[in-house]
């Protein structure tokens, strides 16, 4: 791979995206460029600061444990390619006996 520390095939496997050989070459080179660019951050001394996940003070959000209307099941299922008996249907996950 073009980048010393990015194995594009491995990362694509983690991200669950199939890549062609051409894509692996192209993205590998582009991602190496981008990582080269972000490496500028190493110049910045951050030893004295905490991480910021987001800038607005956040706190736990509670509500009463009360019943409220929710999306009906048929509407929740309406966007799926395959459903069966009120469930999303997927390929077999557990191997056949």
């Amino acid at each position: 791979m073009a980048s010393p520390d990015l194995d594009v095939r491995y990362v694509a496997k983690l991200a669950r995206i199939a890549l062609t050989d051409d894509e692996a070459r192209t993205y590998g080179a582009q991602l190496a460029d981008i990582l080269g660019h972000v490496a500028a951050l190493n110049e910045l001394d951050t030893s004295d600061v905490a991480a910021t996940a987001q800038v607005i003070e956040s706190r736990n959000v509670d509500r009463e444990d009360a019943l409220a209307p929710c999306l009906p099941r048929d509407e929740a299922l309406a966007g799926a390619t395959r459903t069966q008996g009120g469930y999303f249907r997927v390929p077999r996950i557990i191997g056949e006996a």
């Binding site: 972000v38 951050l41 190493n42 910045l44 951050t46 600061v49 905490a50 991480a51 910021t52 996940a53 800038v55």
Partner: peptide
């Protein structure tokens, strides 16, 4: 090296 470092840089930029 990447995500945590960036979140710390974010603190500096906001400051």
């Amino acid at each position: 090296a990447y995500y945590l470092k960036a979140q710390k840089a974010r603190t500096k930029i906001a400051a």
